[in-house]
Amino acid sequence: METPQYVAARIQRALAEDERTNELGIRVDVRGDQVFLRGQVSCEERRHGIEDVAREAAPGLTVHNEVQLLEVSDPGEEEHL
């Protein structure tokens, strides 16, 4: 079996470099044949895109997409500087 650290590095690189994602802020952890993706993106389409790219970069492994949708609330109280 391929060393998990190299698998994780390959997936992370694919997420950054693949034109479908270009996501630099996704954390990738590999435990045995399980891949865990964590981070935040702005919409469901981007969340799925990340999963697709990760699956292609790690064929045969089970991908768990734990990426969350970024909730942006209205502006809060202003800060006085």
Binding site: V72, E78, E79
Partner: peptide, 15 residues
């Protein structure tokens, strides 16, 4: 950065 502030924007008041 949007994921850091979690708001659509923040407001700073310079005195």
């Amino acid at each position: 950065a949007l994921p850091v502030i979690g708001h659509s924007y923040v407001v700073y008041c310079l005195d």
